[in-house]
Every structure is written in structure tokens, then in C-alpha cells.
């Protein structure tokens, strides 16, 4: 009798496997919450510090909750970053290339998925090569080429490669679309063909609408990666055109330029406020479209087969 009771208690507390007993559950949720907190810690710290004034910053008692709502840091950052104007420019070199890249890579993926083209293996090998070869190898000749074409230090130096499917991580997007279009039933295409549609109409009327989720995920990823990219854009856009990220990279000099004071160092509160302003657009998009990002990974096809 006692033995039985003990076994029952044991089962409730420990369970048969990791996530069943009460102890297991507590440990599991505890771990997830603690790690989640550690993950968000930089963001939380950044946010609270960005609301502190100078007195709060140096006051060791004030750690997490500032004594008053102080928005001056944000106002200063808005001015230093020239937020409105810079945001518009940033969007023009992120949203537009993301859109163009999505269109081109989808057409490329469709062609590889649906047609028996000669040299398909070679094309795949070359696409893989563009993923493995670091940008650094071809950026210098591209720099010279764009200089000759007169598009250096204009948004076109970002838009052109994106249009022709050689943008940021284009290879990954081609593979996503290839996987997605390959899963589409051929019967649909054939019935449309019998009804007299040419291959381009089949692509436009059947392929594209059915692939809407892949388009959305690819576009979102493309946008976010372009938003976060600074290495190539700082080279091609030159010293006059700044995206928000590039302004953050040179925040101290931008601050001195905007305020006309060359000696003052910016304090961490202002820099945190600026950082928040820079991640804000992608953060908002992520909060709304979170599902499409996470499910997009499943569509790369590396998770299947």
C-alpha cells in the first residue's frame, strides 16, 4: 500500500520523462524563462538606460527604474541621426532591393524547379559558390565597375546587384523558392497549359499566387538583412550617403557634427537611445509578422528531406 502511494507521488513529481512531473515542469519553464531573460537583458538594459538623465546615470541607487521619464536622449538622437530623412533613405536602400531581389530570385527558383534546362547542375553549383565565396573577393572589382558606370555613391550600386539576383544572400532565396515551387503539384500547371496558358502565364497565374507565403517570408528576411548590412553599403554608398546603421556606426562624429561641439563625449544613455531608434523599425515589423520569419526557415528546405 505504502509502496503504491510512494510510486504515485513519485510519478506526479518526477513524471515518466523530462516534461511530465511537477519538478520537471518547474525546471523546464524556469530554464526557458531565465534564458529568455538573459536573451532580452541587453534590450531591457538599453531601454531603461535610454530613459535616464545624467543624475540617474551616475546615481548607483538607480538601476532599473529611472526617477523620472526623461526623453531628452531620444530627442537629441533624433536630431543627430536626422531621423526622418535618414529613415527614408535607409528604407529606399532596403525595401526596394529586398523587393527586387525577391522577384528575381523567385523567377530563378521557378525556372530551376519547373523546367528541364540544360546545365541545371552547373547553375546550382554556381549559386552555391556565390553563397560560399565571401563578398570581399568581388567587392573591389565591383567598386571599380560601379565607379566606371557612374553609379558609385548612389542607391543604384545597391539596387543593381539585387535586381539581377546577386544581392545579399540571393543564393538562399533562390533555394527557398526552388524548394517551394518544386512542392507545387504539377497537375495544376498541366491543366492550365491544356486550357491554353503559356508557361509565363502559368507562372504568373498559378505559381506566384500559390507561393505567396514564400514571397512574404523571403521579402521579410531580405529586408531585415539589407537593413542590418553595413559592410558593403558603407563601401558603395561612400561618405556622403548614410543609412541609419551607418549613422550609428559613426555616432560620435555625427553627434559632434550635429551639435557643433567637438569636445563632448556622448554618454551611454544617448547612444542607447540612438540604438533603440535604429532597431525600432525592424522590431515593429517583427512583432507584427513574427510568424512569417519563423516559418520561413522551414521553407529553406534544409530542414526537410
Amino acid at each position: 500500500m505504502d509502496q503504491k502511494k510512494l510510486a504515485k507521488v513519485r510519478k506526479v513529481l518526477l513524471g515518466r520523462n523530462l516534461s511530465e512531473g511537477i519538478f520537471g515542469r518547474i525546471a523546464l519553464y524556469g530554464l526557458l524563462i531565465i534564458i529568455g531573460f538573459v536573451y532580452l537583458f541587453p534590450l531591457i538594459k538599453m531601454f531603461t538606460y535610454s530613459l535616464k538623465d545624467l543624475a540617474d546615470l551616475v546615481n548607483p541607487v538607480v538601476e532599473w527604474i529611472p526617477t523620472k521619464l526623461y526623453l531628452e536622449n531620444y530627442l537629441t538622437s533624433l536630431i543627430v541621426l536626422k531621423y526622418g530623412k535618414t529613415l527614408l533613405f535607409s528604407l529606399s536602400v532596403t525595401l526596394i532591393p529586398a523587393l527586387l531581389q525577391t522577384v528575381t530570385t523567385s523567377i530563378t527558383g521557378y525556372a530551376l524547379a519547373k523546367f528541364k534546362v540544360r546545365g541545371k547542375r552547373l547553375v546550382f553549383a554556381l549559386i552555391l559558390l556565390t553563397y560560399l565565396l565571401p563578398q570581399q573577393i568581388y567587392m573591389i572589382p565591383k567598386f571599380v565597375l560601379f565607379d566606371k558606370l557612374g553609379i558609385l555613391e548612389t542607391a543604384w550600386s545597391i539596387l543593381f546587384p539585387a535586381t539581377f539576383g546577386q544581392g545579399l544572400s540571393s543564393a538562399i532565396f533562390i533555394l527557398i523558392f526552388y524548394q517551394f515551387f518544386r512542392m507545387q503539384p504539377v497537375a495544376l500547371d498541366e491543366s492550365a497549359e491544356i486550357d491554353g496558358a503559356n508557361p509565363y502565364q502559368v507562372f504568373w497565374k498559378i505559381g506566384v499566387p500559390l507561393a505567396a507565403p514564400a514571397y512574404l517570408s523571403s521579402f521579410l528576411f531580405s529586408f531585415v538583412w539589407y537593413w542590418n548590412e553595413t559592410y558593403i553599403s558603407s563601401l558603395f554608398l561612400g561618405k556622403e550617403l548614410y543609412t541609419l546603421q551607418l549613422k550609428l556606426l559613426n555616432f560620435q562624429s555625427q553627434f559632434n557634427l550635429a551639435t557643433g561641439i567637438s569636445q563632448t563625449m556622448t554618454n551611454e544613455a544617448i547612444r542607447y537611445a540612438a540604438t533603440i531608434l535604429i532597431i525600432l523599425p525592424v522590431l515593429v515589423i517583427y512583432l507584427i509578422m513574427q510568424r512569417w520569419f519563423v516559418e520561413g526557415i522551414d521553407r529553406t528546405g534544409v530542414t526537410g528531406e
Binding site: N228, L248, T275, I279, I285
Partner: peptide, 8 residues
């Protein structure tokens, strides 16, 4: 993944 750019 969404916010981790070099400058940030």
C-alpha cells in the same frame, strides 16, 4: 536575428 547588425 532581426536586430543584430554590426553597429548595434
Amino acid at each position: 536575428v532581426i536586430i543584430a547588425s554590426g553597429p548595434v
